[in-house]
């Protein structure tokens, strides 16, 4: 009993400790922002490896999710004779929820895990300490560009996901199931609200990009510098990002759409 309590206490302390280190890490990262602006080359390189290399998985997943939405939506809506509104349903689900959330989950698995492994291995092979000894601050040179690349890529990837998904829904809806193409697009244009749907969706993906990049980089930086430590950190990145994304999604949705 006492043992359990002690354990619980130790674990709680460890979590708070980690939260503290994580916050300090974030502040240090943010303080490296200026040097990212001064050296855009570093940012561009990272935008490529974090963002551009995630294009394929985002596009393909977006297409399939959109196609499934087209199918499911059609079967439900046609029962009420409302298949004309398929476009609205597909677009709203994607732009509000599935676009930001699913692309963030994919991003955590594709780019987040890669970032953690990269930073963790750089730590394990003393590259970070070597840089410090060469008077190059790894927070500025390595961490900050990757962080901002993640923050910038995420909303763009989410937008790509939604756009491709809407096309997928249209392919299935009008191509396969015979929903009027004009209705698909015009209903969507008429019913989607810029502020409510699009801006809120973008806000969500910005938050997810921030949180995922932070978790991925911090887990790598905080990893125990061994192969096992890095592998555990990579797992933690994916798991913790997924929890944070889904939890925050609920909170953000409640805040954004709560007063309707």
């Amino acid at each position: 009993m006492i043992d359990n309590l002690q354990n619980l206490g130790a674990q709680t302390r460890a979590s708070f400790n980690k939260l503290g280190r994580g916050t300090f890490f974030l502040l240090q990262t943010l303080s490296g922002t200026l040097s990212v602006l001064l050296r855009p080359r570093l940012l561009v390189n990272q935008l490529y490896s974090v963002g551009v290399l995630s294009f394929l998985i985002i596009t393909i997943s977006g297409l399939f999710v959109g196609m499934v939405l087209g199918l499911q939506g059609y079967y439900t809506l046609s029962r009420f004779g409302a298949e004309e509104t398929l476009g609205v349903m597909v677009a709203a689900s994607l732009v509000r929820e599935l676009g930001p959330v699913v692309s963030a989950l994919l991003f955590a698995g594709r780019a987040g895990s890669a970032l953690t492994a990269e930073i963790g291995l750089m730590k394990a092979t003393e590259q970070l300490s070597g840089m410090e000894m060469m008077a190059v601050d790894p927070m500025k040179r390595i961490i900050a560009p990757r962080f901002w690349a993640g923050c910038i890529s995420m909303p763009l990837l989410a937008a790509l996901f939604s756009a491709v998904g809407i096309i997928g829904g249209q392919l299935v809806g009008s191509g396969l199931l015979g929903v009027d193409e004009g209705a698909y697009w015009s209903q969507m244009q008429a019913k989607l609200d810029f502020q409510d749907d699009i801006v809120n969706g973008i806000l969500k993906s910005i938050v997810f990009g921030f949180i995922t990049s932070w978790i991925a980089l911090f887990e790598g930086y905080d990893a125990i510098p061994t192969s096992e430590g890095v592998s555990r950190a990579t797992t933690r990145t994916v798991v913790n990002s997924a929890f944070s994304i889904l939890g925050l999604d609920f909170i953000l949705t409640a805040l954004m759409f709560g007063d309707h």
Binding site: Q127, M133, M134
Partner: peptide, 16 residues
């Protein structure tokens, strides 16, 4: 100060 100090790490610590 570190700019004026060179350090050779036991592992090399080259950027991979």
């Amino acid at each position: 100060l570190r700019k004026r100090i060179g350090m050779l790490f036991q592992s090399g610590a080259l950027l991979t």
